[in-house]
Write a protein that binds this DNA or RNA. Structure first.
Lengths: 102, 102
DNA sequence: ATTATATGCAACTAAATGGTTGCATAAATT
DNA sequence: AATTTATGCAACCATTTAGTTGCATATAAT
């Protein structure tokens, strides 16, 4: 289950906050992004790295700073997975309803 | 970020498999559900408990067995969260595109 | 009553996780 | 050239996690 890695990456308050910030499309440097997360810069950096490893965000070095951006494809994959589960669920409910109405 | 707990619950292969099975709407006992997951019954039971704690599934005791069912509301919450992020992302892309076209 | 089944509970282990601090270094600024 | 800034790397620590095994217990079947 490759998508489990994406969910896992989203399953931490600090990492989810990072992703939420990036989803506004702005460009952040690692330093900027690390502010106000309630952890040290290096603590934030580790979570950023976790998101990179899970392919949820990307790093783009530029001079002495590094820009961070979202990989929207991962979000999409996660959403599609859930949508698929919900679809099965809804179909089951429909089948049950029809059974009762007979 | 309450939704982080749901993502965390989905962020493990065994747990995600459990959720995927339950999404077909069938009723499983804990024992049935624990089969073929590649871990011991107690190992599976711990993951089931983790999903219960995260409010992703529910247990319904019945005699000597316990039935397990999905809480579709949690899935929906997770999906809606991602959808919201994607929305912001898409709006940003649109704004950038318009900027270029000027 | 005995046996089989479904489940629960507890102790234990190894590895992963989330966080820290300290120091190093490359790039930009003065 | 000296300083400031942005970042990286490594060691360390406490807690959580994912898994195990062993034993207990309540319900159902024979």
């Amino acid at each position: 289950m490759a998508v489990a890695n994406i969910f896992k990456a989203l399953g931490d308050p600090v990492r989810l906050e990072i992703v939420a910030r990036l989803s506004d499309g702005s460009t952040y440097t690692i330093g900027r992004l690390s502010e106000d997360l309630g952890v040290s810069r290096q603590g934030a950096r580790k979570q950023i790295q976790a998101l990179v490893t899970a392919d949820v965000i990307e790093l783009h070095p530029a001079g002495r700073e590094t820009h961070v951006s979202l990989n929207a494809a991962s979000l999409q994959e996660a959403r599609r997975f859930i949508t698929q589960l919900e679809k099965q669920w809804d179909q089951r409910l429909l089948a049950l309803k029809q059974l009762v109405e007979e």
